[in-house]
Design a protein around this nucleic acid. Structure first.
Lengths: 128, 128
DNA sequence: TTCTATATAACGGGCACCGGAATACCTTCG
DNA sequence: CGAAGGTATTCCGGTGCCCGTTATATAGAA
């Protein structure tokens, strides 16, 4: 879990940052906050939740029985909040780096040809 | 490749957005633009490059022989630029969503207990 | 010569995510 | 009354990206 979070996991933590939710509710919340772009599958969701609970980023917030159906609530732990903060910062930096390079590209006179590499090119192989 | 990009791949495209680079140069460029947080392994780098070339997001920009060593340059293709733009936008939205929820959290009187779920809770199971 | 830096190739393994199916209960509709 | 559909969780097989390491090759430094 020290690996950078993938999108589904990141969105699960983000959804839980607002309020505790149960699994099925998370599917809808994640769909909502991603404008319908991400639809969690059961396998992805519950697999991720199990991992997050194991890692201590999410706590089980209690269970309810509603209309005979079990409903298990999950809550973002302090560690989960810290992880989400750190991940968000990481993404923010990546976004900033990519945005800057893309912007320079748009204003530049075409794609620059060849960067200053490590060593000094001596022999041009030419076309691939 | 229609999967959201993972961080190494995203950073490779970001590095190539500035200028064409060869594999080993990418390792250093990615380390630089991520403030040393991400150190690409050869397996990760060349695996990703092969996939990106296959997907048409990156083109081989020619080869040089420098000091007897082969040096193959890679260049971001128009499709790669479009993909990087779209990915950056996606990340930007995720960052915005997470940032908003984290900020509300900081100003709220503690973590809210239980959200309005889908149905109406009728029977509280209580403690986990 | 041996070590270090440059540079690419190849291989095995892990883990998260995907996709679907199973299970179970309740409500709604024909 | 029976069928269909939404709610909610569990399980399982498959895939792909990434990891980590090792191998290969050359040039320059110690």
């Amino acid at each position: 879990m020290d690996t950078p979070l993938r999108e589904p996991t990141f969105l699960i933590l983000t959804a839980l940052a607002a309020a505790p939710l149960h699994g099925y509710g998370l599917i809808r919340e994640v769909a909502a906050l991603s404008d319908g772009r991400v639809t969690l599958r059961p396998g992805t969701l519950y697999g991720a939740l199990d991992r997050l609970v194991d890692a201590g980023l999410v706590d089980v917030d209690g269970e309810e029985v509603v209309d005979g159906r079990l409903r298990r609530y999950y809550r973002l732990s302090p560690a989960g909040e810290a992880t989400l903060s750190a991940e968000t910062e990481r993404l923010r930096r990546n976004v900033a780096a990519a945005t800057e390079r893309l912007r320079n590209r748009a204003t530049d006179p075409g794609t620059p040809r060849r960067a200053a590499g490590t060593g000094t090119p001596r022999l041009a192989g030419g076309a691939a």
